[in-house]
Simulated assay, not measured.
Amino acid sequence: MIAHTDACGCRECLTRQRAREAQKRYRQRRRDGRVKPRRPQPARSEPPAAAPVLLDVFTTPALPGALCRGKHALFDPAEPSDDHRVLDQLHREAVALCDTCPALARCRSWIESLPAHKRPTGVVAGRLITEETR
């Protein structure tokens, strides 16, 4: 594993350094009163009557530290036009990522708490779930 420092010069370190500098400039502008206050967010209305059913299907639990965040392409179910060799490789990578995930236990308990017909397809909690295996 490579130890990163501010003087490393790699892309990751430079990106982090730029982000720190931007945050520093923002804090200074905020202290100086040069930042406009954010607009208040509109109040959320109640969901329509049919929404609870949809929310059950599409609502996933908060899983802090989940390694799958932002990597949905690895976990998506197969499409008819997909090359199965590539898809198998992606799913193997997703399962391997799940095996090292700190949120795996919570993810498994969530997926097992769902009725079979509401479980999402694709790789979930380290398992490949298809329409047939649901």
Rank of each mutant, 00 (worst) to 15 (best):
R108I: 00
D83R: 12
A96M: 04
E46W: 15
L74W: 06
R20P: 02
Q28K: 07
R18T: 13
L63H: 10
V123L: 02
C13V: 12
C8G: 02
G122W: 01
A105I: 03
L114S: 03
L14C: 14
K24G: 09
K24N: 15
T5H: 07
L128W: 03
L104I: 01
A73L: 14
H91N: 05
D82V: 01
T121M: 11
T130W: 02
T130G: 02
L54V: 09
V86L: 11
R34G: 02
G70L: 07
L128C: 03
R25E: 14
R108T: 00
S113V: 02
R31D: 13
T5L: 03
P120I: 04
T130K: 04
P47I: 02
A73F: 06
D6I: 12
V86N: 08
T60I: 14
V95S: 04
L128N: 02
H91I: 07
R119V: 00
H117D: 04
S81W: 09
Q41Y: 11
T59K: 09
P52R: 12
R31P: 06
H117K: 12
L114V: 05
E93I: 10
G126I: 00
V53W: 15
R106K: 15
T100A: 08
R38L: 06
V123Y: 06
C8P: 02
P120Y: 05
A43S: 06
I129R: 11
E21S: 11
P37L: 05
